[in-house]
């Protein structure tokens, strides 16, 4: 019995325990390629879209081609609007002149004066009294205040 010692008959490869921990770490590393970390299904496809959506590319077409065209177009539109405005102003003046000419041609002096009664009495006459002498004002008052009075005066 003394021939049997408590030494284990099992043997291990040389240096087994020296590099055991290194091999263990390597084994863990190989067990899972990502070392246990996982990602949601389709994550990399989604994140690619998210990233590309977050980035705002400059619109180079606008900068190089469309922008000058827009500038030219807007200048043309402004010029047209200016010309159109000028033309319509001319037309308005022409129309006004034609209307006044027509009015003066087809209405008698009395009719024109009659149409203007209100303004003669309330504004023009009162303001003109202020700018003339008292004698002139009395004379005008007695003999020629209103064009309609002229007939009455003549009859007398």
């Amino acid at each position: 019995m003394s021939r049997f010692t408590n030494k284990s008959p099992f043997k291990v490869p040389k240096g087994y325990f020296e590099d055991f921990d290194s091999r263990l770490i390597q084994k863990i590393k190989n067990t899972s390629e990502k070392n246990g970390f996982n990602i949601p299904n389709g994550y990399f496809q989604r994140v690619e879209k998210d990233i590309l959506n977050k980035v705002k590319y400059p619109n180079h077409r606008t900068a190089t081609l469309v922008s000058p065209l827009w500038k030219i177009a807007s200048i043309i539109v402004l010029m047209f609007l200016f010309y159109y405005n000028e033309q319509s102003m001319l037309n308005q003046n022409e129309f006004a002149e034609f209307y006044i000419e027509d009015y003066l041609m087809f209405n008698t002096t009395y009719e024109i004066a009659d149409h203007s009664d209100y303004s003669f009495e309330n504004s023009n006459f009162s303001s003109s009294y202020e700018s003339m002498s008292i004698d002139d004002a009395i004379e005008l008052r007695l003999y020629g205040e209103l064009p309609t009075n002229l007939n009455l005066f003549d009859d007398e």
Partner: peptide, 14 residues
Amino acid sequence: DVYFDSNAMLIKLQ
């Protein structure tokens, strides 16, 4: 963590 393998050894390493 749902995005981690619940392996005892991997957790210990992490």
